[in-house]
C-alpha cells in the first residue's frame, strides 16, 4: 500500500511536470498532496502514531484542498496567465526524468543496507525534490514556480513521513505555519501585475 502510494506520488509529480495549463497543474498538485496525506495516514495507522495521523489529516485539508483553491482564487483575482508552456523541450524532459531517478537510486545505494527503513524512500524523496526543482526551472511564469515550491514542500514531507517515520509534531506544525505565511506573502507579492521572471 505504502509503495503504491509513493508510486502514485511520483506519478502525479511527473505528470505535473508535463502539464501546460495552470488549473491542470493545480489539480495535479492537489492529487500529489492527497497521496501524501493518505501515505501519512496509512503509515500513521500502521505505526499507531497519532501525530502522524493528524499530520495526514491537516495535509489533506490544507494542501490538497485549501492551497490549490486559494491559488486558483488568487490567479483569478490577479489575472495570472493560464497558459504555462514549459521552457524545456519535452524531448529533454523525457530524458531528464529517468536520469534523475536513476541517479538518486545510485546515490541511495550506499545507505540501502545501513538503515532499518527502506533506502528507496530516501531516493524517491530526493528525486521528487529534483523533480520539483525541475518544475520550477521549466516555467518562467510565477504561478508554476509557486506550485514547484509547494511540491518541494511535499517532497520534504514525503521524506519526513517515509524515511524517518514521522518528524516531531512541533516541526510539522511549524512547517505548516510557515507554509501559511508563505501563502500570505505570495498574496502580498501578487499585488502587482504578474512578473515575468
Amino acid at each position: 500500500m505504502v509503495d503504491f502510494l509513493i508510486g502514485l506520488f511520483l506519478a502525479t509529480l511527473i505528470t505535473a511536470l508535463f502539464t501546460s495549463r495552470l488549473y491542470r497543474l493545480l489539480f495535479w498538485y492537489s492529487l500529489n498532496s492527497l497521496t501524501l496525506g493518505l501515505l501519512a495516514l496509512v503509515i500513521g495507522a500502521r505505526l499507531d502514531d497519532r501525530a502522524m495521523l493528524m499530520t495526514g489529516g491537516v495535509t489533506i485539508a490544507l494542501k490538497a484542498l485549501a492551497i490549490p483553491y486559494v491559488l486558483k482564487v488568487l490567479s483569478r483575482r490577479f489575472g495570472l496567465s493560464r497558459q504555462t508552456p514549459p521552457g524545456i523541450k519535452t524531448q529533454y524532459a523525457i530524458m531528464l526524468v529517468p536520469a534523475i531517478l536513476v541517479f538518486t537510486f545510485y546515490l541511495a545505494e550506499p545507505i540501502s543496507h545501513m538503515v532499518q527503513g527502506n533506502a528507496n524512500y530516501v531516493a524517491i524523496s530526493i528525486s521528487s525534490l529534483f523533480l520539483s526543482l525541475l518544475l520550477m526551472i521549466e516555467h518562467r511564469n510565477v504561478a508554476p514556480k509557486i506550485v514547484g515550491f509547494l511540491s518541494m514542500e511535499n517532497a520534504l514531507f514525503l521524506l519526513g513521513t517515509t524515511a524517518t517515520r514521522g518528524m516531531p509534531m512541533l516541526v510539522e506544525l511549524g512547517i505548516f505555519f510557515d507554509l501559511l505565511m508563505a501563502i500570505v506573502v505570495i498574496n502580498l507579492l501578487l499585488y502587482r501585475e504578474e512578473a515575468e521572471l
Binding site: F103, L129, F130, L133, L134, M136, I137, K145, G148, L197
Partner: peptide
C-alpha cells in the same frame, strides 16, 4: 534568470 537551474545542477 536561471537560479533554480543553477541550484539544481549544484545539488546534483
Amino acid at each position: 534568470t536561471r537560479y533554480a537551474a543553477m541550484i539544481f545542477n549544484l545539488t546534483l
